[in-house]
Design a protein around this nucleic acid. Structure first.
Lengths: 211, 211
DNA sequence: TTGTGTGAATCCCTTCACAGCG
DNA sequence: CGCTGTGAAGGGATTCACACAA
């Protein structure tokens, strides 16, 4: 049904969904592509083009029914269901994510925490006991984990990724500052804070040298 | 000296710099664009094109002198100096960033922490005392803060951003899931974890429906 | 010979503009 | 009318291919 959707489109769909949820709360029934564009820092044509990749669910002369479109976007983005997530690495970043409120409210359920620190193994975060890394594969497989959040130091990341893939997980959100080598069918999203900071300092530095 | 550098180029420069630092440690003297490409998940032509935006610092038939190129990249990315950073929001994400080891080692020095929670105001993280938001403007201005990391709830983010800009800061790393409205000359980098997760679940969902 | 630097060709994303439906 | 959906045009970024320097 779909072919080659640009990554930039996906990010915008995420935005549109958030805007729609705001609009739902405000009681409106429909939106135009122009209004969505305004809230998403893009253009009306772009909104329509983005949506057209997946079908045509607007009414000409009227716009999009908010409820219908948001349901469809949830479906497209795959968030019309609950994803079972394992958190590998119970350090600072792991803890921040674990408590991130948007996390559970958006359909991501953390069902396992893994860390290699003996002082942490066996302790609890909320109801969840922290496991050591030894039985990683069987643990993930038994719990039916689909998504892994990798928040371990760079040196441990590749091994944990490989073992997770072996356990049958389907995607990785990677906070370690390395390029993971995994089979092509396992998507990886990288979050690299140093890179973001460097993009920022570049932008500032350049700005100073231009009028 | 430079015009219109694509954002994707900057992210790759960041990568190259990290690769170069690895190579520096391993004692080599030179790299080819091909080797850099291999480590950066891109092509040799792309590496050369990226670098050519800023000048030509390779030697034909030989490659790039590692030390020279990494120094030049640090200069380009603006990380050949120390940036004074303020952390606004001392919650989970703030705490994770504060302890992020790459942070200080890369030239970002946190000189102030601000939070509105009365229970936190006055307490210390390492040597740094947490301030309330009341005197934000004067605090940032006095300390000469250039970069702000915004790790507060969405509802507070816009106000904190505006006040930071008024205090003369030059860039914002934003973790709040909203589009900040700030003057054009203040660059903002957004880190949106929900968006990353949604990109991942989209990729997985799509993948299943294709052979 | 090796590997850079770079115009030219290509590819892909965005924007335009308008036909067509409600 | 008003606003969507979409081919066509436009603009950037990536890739190609080769002249040229070491």
């Amino acid at each position: 049904m779909t072919r080659r959707i640009p990554a930039s489109t996906i990010r915008r769909l995420s935005h549109y969904l958030r805007s729609l949820e705001d609009l739902e709360a405000s009681g409106d029934e429909t939106v135009s592509s122009e209004e969505l564009a305004l809230r998403g820092q893009t253009t009306a044509a772009q909104v329509r083009k983005d949506l057209s990749h997946f079908g045509s669910f607007g009414k000409r002369g009227l716009g999009y029914r908010i409820e219908e479109l948001s349901a469809r976007l949830r479906q497209i983005l795959g968030v019309d269901r609950v994803w079972k997530v394992a958190l590998i690495g119970a350090g600072r970043i792991g803890s921040a994510l674990f408590e991130y409120p948007a996390f559970e409210s958006r359909g991501y359920e953390c069902v396992a925490i893994i860390d290699s620190d003996p002082a942490k193994i066996g302790t609890y975060w909320s109801e969840l006991q922290i496991h050591g890394p030894d039985d990683l594969e069987s643990l993930l497989a038994e719990l039916g984990v689909e998504l892994v959040i990798l928040a371990v130091p760079a040196r441990a990341a590749q091994e944990m990724a490989e073992r997770s893939v072996r356990a049958g997980i389907k995607g990785i959100l990677n906070f370690a500052p390395i390029r993971l080598k995994v089979p092509r069918h396992v998507p990886v999203e990288d979050v690299n804070l140093v890179m973001e900071l460097e993009a920022l300092s570049f932008a500032i530095t350049q700005h100073g040298s231009e009028p």
